[in-house]
Design a protein around this nucleic acid. Structure first.
Length: 165
DNA sequence: TCCGTATTGAACT
DNA sequence: AGTTCAATACGGA
């Protein structure tokens, strides 16, 4: 019994995101990539009804965040990672809309005040950007820092939320 | 075990 | 004010 790793596109005004689902929930989310002509056509029949339901929720939540609104509902997240990473991701999800935290604050929040760089590593390993608001985590002096899936997205999202000019 | 990392804060130009 | 440097925790090879 292989793990079905299903990819489904989410069409937004900002492009086509690609959601990855496992049998347990949303396992990943990719930013739109230029030049991805056609995501593989998946016949809707092959997709478990449960996943379609998650996908709908995911799409709503994603669009909500992209329009600077709090998601009303989140799909189950299947985040594979170490205990430390889960702590970091959980801490990041507590950041409310339009707010920011520094890596140091996240580290302190999970009881490891000096693990700031490790926090950065966990952010980079975050499989679900946007929904887990890793873009709201800035460096201590309010500098942007980095972003795995493209710094442009981070800046753009921060602009929408009025965090930066 | 060693290396890289989306950091940080202090010391030095 | 800009730059360099050491410290620190964790994950991957």
């Amino acid at each position: 019994m292989k793990q079905q790793h299903i990819e489904l596109p989410i069409v937004t005004n900002d492009g086509v995101f690609l959601a990855h689902y496992s049998e347990k929930g949303l396992a990943g989310l990719d930013f739109p990539k230029v030049g991805r002509a056609s995501s593989r056509a998946v016949s809707a029949k092959q997709i478990p009804l449960e996943i379609l339901r998650w996908h709908r929720t995911t799409g709503e939540a994603l669009k909500a965040v992209l329009t600077v609104r709090a998601p009303k509902e989140m799909p189950p997240l299947d985040m594979t990672g170490t205990a430390f990473q889960k702590s970091v991701w959980a801490a990041m999800r507590k950041i409310s809309l339009g707010k920011t935290k520094s890596y140091g604050e996240i580290a302190a929040g999970i009881g490891r005040p000096k693990a700031v760089r490790a926090v950065g590593g966990a952010c980079g390993a975050n499989p679900i950007p946007v929904l887990v608001p890793c873009h709201r985590v800035l460096a201590a002096n309010k500098k942007i820092g980095g972003f795995s899936s493209g710094l442009d997205w981070k800046i753009d999202l921060l602009k929408r939320e009025g965090i930066i000019c």
